[in-house]
Design a protein around this nucleic acid. Structure first.
Lengths: 117, 117
DNA sequence: TCTATAATTAACTGATGAGCTAAATGGTGA
DNA sequence: TCACCATTTAGCTCATCAGTTAATTATAGA
C-alpha cells in the first residue's frame, strides 16, 4: 500500500480523525486517548497503529506508558500535495490564506493556542 | 452520515481519488471514465454515486449519456477546513503558499495553467 | 521475585464494501 | 413501435474492517 493510500485510509475513520484532533494540541498517553472514547483499549490500539503506520503520529514508550503525538508536518503535507494534484485551483482558499498571512505575519507562534472550542 | 464523513469516506478509495484526478481538468461522460479503469460499468457507477453523494462531483444527463464533473470548491474546501481543525499550524505549507502568492500576486488568473509538472 | 498496571497481540464475530452478472431504466433514431 | 446504446439498479459473493474478550508482553515497585 502506498503512503498516500495509507494516509487516506487512516483518515477514512471518524474515530481516527478525532484522535488526531485530540493530539493536535499535545501528546497523550494511550490510556488517556482511550478514555476519551467508548471503546475497548485493544480497539483503540489498532486505530493508533493504523495512524502510526500512515506516518501521521509518532509513538514513544515512557515506562509502562506509551505516549502518542502528531507527526507534525506529515498530515498537512500529504493533504496539501493531494489538493495540488487533484483540486481545481481554489481561489477561495488562496484568498483565505492570504488574509491569514497578512493578519498573522508578525505573530507566527500564536497559532498553537485558541482556535478550538 | 455527516458531510465531512462522506467526503473522507469517498476519498478513502484510490479508484475514487483517481476519478477525481481525471475530472480535474474537464468533465467526462460515465463511459469515458469507465474506459480508463479495468472494472465493470456497474462498479464504476457506484464509485461515481459515492463521489456525488459526498458533493465532490456533479452529474448531468445529456441525452443517453451522463456527464460528470468536479464540484469545484467543495473538495478543497472540506480538506482545508479539516486541515485547519486538525493539523498543527503547518509552517511549511504557509511558507509555500506565501511564496506562491508573492510570485503570482500580479497575475492572479494564471492559476489555471502551469503549477503542474 | 511477586504483584499490579499499561498496552498490545491473538482469535474470533458481525457488518460493510467492492466487485461481478443479469435485469431494468432512460433516451436515440429508423 | 422496435432495436439499440448508455447507464444504473438488483441481487449476489468474497474479502476486509471494526469491534469484542482473553491472553501476552513490558515495566514499576515492594
Amino acid at each position: 500500500m502506498s503512503t498516500p493510500d495509507k494516509v487516506f485510509d487512516a483518515l477514512s475513520s471518524s474515530v481516527r480523525r478525532k484522535i488526531l484532533a485530540y493530539l493536535r494540541d499535545r501528546p497523550l498517553h494511550a490510556g488517556a486517548i482511550s478514555n476519551r472514547f467508548e471503546m475497548s483499549k485493544p480497539a483503540m490500539s489498532k486505530h493508533l497503529a493504523i495512524l502510526e503506520g500512515a506516518g501521521l503520529i509518532w509513538r514513544k514508550r515512557e515506562g509502562q506508558f506509551v505516549l502518542y503525538g502528531m507527526e507534525d508536518e506529515n498530515l498537512a503535507g500529504h493533504l496539501w500535495t493531494f489538493m495540488q494534484e487533484v483540486c481545481p485551483p481554489s481561489r477561495a482558499i488562496r484568498a483565505e490564506v492570504r488574509a491569514e498571512l497578512e493578519a498573522g505575519e508578525a505573530d507566527d507562534s500564536s497559532d498553537d493556542a485558541a482556535e478550538k472550542a
